[in-house]
Amino acid sequence: MTFFATERLALRHFRPADAPVLAAYRSDPEVARYQGWEVPYALGAAEAFVRTLSWSDPNEPGWFQYAVEAGGELVGDVAVNLHENRMQAEIGYTFAIPHQGKGYATEAVGRVLTHLFADRGLHRVSAECDARNARSANLLTRLGFRQEGHRVQATWAKGEWTDDLLFGLLAGEWEARTTVR
């Protein structure tokens, strides 16, 4: 089932056939560096994750993961954690290395933000990233997020303390940004 289409992408439910590709890009140490999982990311874990996602609903509170497809190929995913109040959410995203630097993340996350603000009427969307992940911070800034905080040595990940950057975007800011274009 495709939820959204952009000029180059389809955002859809994960399918069982996606598990090997998901396991492959999550097993890439460069992709996993700033994420919470360890490498290698086992095929069995990817299959279980895809099964879990098959019954998740993007309209219900909690995490939902959109598979991002370009030219019929899974290139990454965008996650949305809808708050219990259904008025705010947190987003995250992961893209395979060969598909980074092509604007896919900007296009996919931008489309999800349009859905969350324009279609769903959310008030606020937040995101956070490892402070060393300049590409992720730049993506959020490019999409109109403002950096709201910098937590120093706030997360213990992969054997080290890391800094977290906190970002936020309000519906009015998104609307003003998209109206100007």
Rank of each mutant, 00 (worst) to 15 (best):
M1P: 03
F4S: 07
T6W: 08
T6V: 01
L11H: 11
L11K: 04
H13Y: 10
R15A: 05
D18K: 04
D18A: 02
A19M: 03
A23L: 02
A24M: 12
S27I: 04
D28Y: 05
D28I: 09
P29N: 09
P29V: 11
E30H: 12
A32L: 09
Y34D: 01
Q35P: 01
W37A: 11
E38Q: 02
P40W: 04
L43P: 13
G44A: 14
F49T: 12
F49N: 00
V50D: 03
T52M: 09
T52S: 08
T52G: 10
L53R: 08
S54Q: 08
S54P: 07
W55D: 10
D57E: 14
E60A: 15
W63D: 14
Q65N: 14
Q65F: 08
A67G: 13
E69Q: 07
A70D: 08
G72F: 04
V75N: 11
A79P: 02
H83L: 05
H83W: 03
E84D: 14
E84V: 15
N85F: 01
R86Y: 03
M87S: 11
Y93K: 03
T94D: 06
F95R: 12
A96C: 10
A96L: 07
A96W: 05
A96I: 13
H99V: 04
Q100Y: 00
G101F: 01
K102W: 09
Y104P: 01
Y104K: 01
T106R: 13
T106L: 06
E107D: 06
A108P: 00
T114F: 05
F117G: 09
F117T: 04
A118T: 06
A118N: 13
R120Y: 04
H123E: 04
R124P: 00
V125H: 10
V125F: 05
A127Q: 03
A127V: 02
C129N: 07
C129K: 10
D130G: 10
A131V: 15
A134L: 15
A134Y: 06
A134P: 11
A134D: 14
R135W: 04
A137L: 02
N138T: 02
N138E: 14
N138W: 02
T141A: 14
L143R: 14
G144V: 09
G149Y: 04
G149M: 10
G149S: 05
R151Q: 15
Q153H: 08
T155G: 00
A157H: 05
K158G: 03
K158M: 06
W161Q: 10
D164K: 13
L165C: 12
L166D: 05
A171H: 07
G172E: 14
G172L: 11
W174K: 07
E175M: 11
T178G: 00
T179A: 07
V180G: 00
